[in-house]
């Protein structure tokens, strides 16, 4: 197997790394923007680098740090970030066959390197009939990891050059980015009722003054998901 240069772990890793490059370029833009946000949370290169490598989940990092910047407590920021990452259970469950009979460190590495982007890449390659698996996923994950770590740390270093985010409208950058993320998460008309529920719950919670914004967001998100579970059908 390994004697054949077109198959085997190394070739699979390399093809995964090569094929993730267009997506890694997009991650760099996100990462730079995250770095600017992190600097508003008074995070330095060390904190940003530690978070990028230990958490390695873009959207959840953005949400948690955005909550921290907004003045939410650590608990609310943490709950919001973890709630957003619960979907990763479904991501790794769908590729659990990649991990059978592997040593523990490969299972841990593969788990940590599983993201939406390289998961989608490897699953799409398999649907196209290619015999790729674990090392293809790891190759893509390695590319994304490097892109995310470098761009977020670069972003936080570069951010000190920007004087006052609100005066330039840059505080709105992530609201706009989240609007685009929402657009990419829209799956069709079955999302209408859950999303409407989320918005209504947040509006009620904020305008009634019953909850602070971070808990309003968690309550709204969970309420929408519950509605999707109850009212939808497969």
């Amino acid at each position: 197997m390994t004697a054949d240069p077109t198959t085997g772990p190394v070739a699979e890793f390399r093809s995964g790394l090569r094929e993730i490059m267009p997506l890694a370029a997009g991650v760099v833009i996100y990462g730079l923007a995250f770095g600017v946000l992190a600097s508003q949370a008074l995070m330095g290169g060390l904190e940003t680098g530690a978070m990028g490598s230990l958490v390695f989940a873009g959207a959840a990092q953005i949400v948690a740090v955005e909550r921290a910047v907004a003045g939410a407590g650590a608990l609310a920021a943490l709950v919001a970030g973890i709630a957003l990452n619960l979907r990763l259970v479904l991501v790794t469950a769908s590729i659990r066959a990649f991990f059978t009979d592997r040593p523990w460190w490969q299972v841990a590495l593969g788990a940590h390197f599983s993201t939406d982007e390289n998961w989608a890449m490897t699953v799409a390659a398999r649907k196209a009939g290619r015999d790729v698996g674990y090392w293809h996923l790891i190759g893509g994950g390695a590319g994304l990891f490097a892109a995310w770590l470098c761009s977020t740390v670069a972003g936080v270093m570069f951010a000190s050059a920007i004087p006052e985010p609100r005066a330039l409208g840059i505080d709105f950058a992530f609201t706009a980015a989240f609007i685009l993320i929402a657009r990419t998460l829209w799956q069709g008309r079955q999302d209408l009722l859950p999303w409407g529920t989320s918005i209504a719950v947040v509006a009620l919670a904020l305008w009634s003054g019953a909850l602070d914004p971070s808990w309003a967001l968690i309550l709204g998100g969970v309420a929408g998901a519950v509605i999707a579970g109850i009212a939808g059908d497969d």
Partner: peptide, 28 residues
Amino acid sequence: LPVTGGWARALSALPGTLIVALVAGQVF
């Protein structure tokens, strides 16, 4: 883990509903 049914639908809807709730909060 369930792949169909209410729990699976709720779990897969959660990222979207959380992001929408976040945007709504920021805009409101």
